[in-house]
């Protein structure tokens, strides 16, 4: 077992007391280090950052071809299409969230570190959102133009996607953590995660729809924010528990 040997060397190198008494600012340093490391790693693999965006554009291209190029029809279904396509693009990028770290063993190091795993996982998810959810949100208005999305809803589209995709990253990370130890977890991951995405989709697409109809969007955005708050509070613990299961299994 490679796992037990790693544990043995760590406990030999550091006496047990140092594991309990962490240096001041230890968590902050660890968070910064995890954040910077993940950011650097992802920025060096540009393909992985660009793929979801290309996928997003491609899926949006398919709809006018498959349904109809009629701008009137497209403009009525555009909010839902944009949201669904962005959601799928975000889902596509989830599988690699912990995969690399799992393969090269650095995930085990995260587990063994004296800092809480939930916080470190949160840092990783934050990077994922920064390089997947946020670019998708920024790109969506461009695709909105192509689907003749009615004017006045572009800002809301970006805002709702930015807010919603943070929840998507958090919820999706639970699924990614559960399936990272499995050889072919990709399809299973979408099966686990997609049902949990539905509330976010409802209120995200609902916000854009409301903006088009001229209704108030604050309620939708407030609920998206509430969903994010709940996800921020609960998801890190679920991610940490899932990572422990995947590593020890």
């Amino acid at each position: 077992m490679p796992m037990s040997s790693t544990e043995a060397t760590v406990s030999k190198a550091e006496p047990a007391t140092s594991l309990h008494r962490e240096p001041s600012g230890g968590l902050r340093v660890a968070l910064q280090a995890t954040f910077r490391r993940d950011l650097t790693l992802l920025l060096r693999r540009r393909g992985e950052v660009l793929n979801p965006l290309v996928f997003f554009a491609l899926v949006i291209t398919l709809f006018p071809i498959g349904i109809s190029p009629d701008p009137e029809l497209l403009s009525t279904i555009a909010p839902g299409l944009l949201w669904v396509a962005a959601l799928l693009a975000a889902l596509l990028s989830l599988d690699s969230l912990f995969r690399g770290d799992y393969d090269d063993g650095s995930l085990e190091q995260l587990l063994l570190s004296p800092q809480p795993l939930a916080a470190l996982a949160l840092a990783k998810v934050a990077v994922h959102w920064l390089l997947t959810g946020l670019p998708l949100a920024l790109m969506a208005p461009v695709l909105g133009i192509m689907l003749s999305l009615p004017a006045g809803s572009y800002l809301v589209l970006s805002l709702s996607l930015a807010l919603g995709s943070a929840s998507l990253s958090l919820i999706g990370a639970i699924g990614a953590a559960l399936t990272v130890g499995l050889a072919r977890g990709g399809v299973l991951l979408s099966l686990l995660v997609l049902p949990l995405y539905i509330p976010v989709l409802i209120f995200g697409a609902g916000a854009v729809q409301a903006a088009i109809l001229g209704d108030s969007i604050t309620a939708h955005l407030a609920i998206l924010g509430a969903l994010l708050a709940v996800a921020l509070m609960l998801a890190p613990w679920a991610i940490a528990a899932s990572l422990r299961i995947s590593i020890n299994g």
């Binding site: 919820i171 949990l196 299961i245 995947s246 299994g249």
Partner: peptide
């Protein structure tokens, strides 16, 4: 279906149990 599929996907029974429990709690 997700919970059942996840339980079936693990080869170790203990991991399968704990993963299914987490997913049921999330669900």
């Amino acid at each position: 279906v997700g919970v059942i599929a996840l339980r079936g996907a693990f080869s170790s029974r203990d991991s399968a149990s704990r993963a299914a429990s987490v997913l049921a709690l999330v669900g």
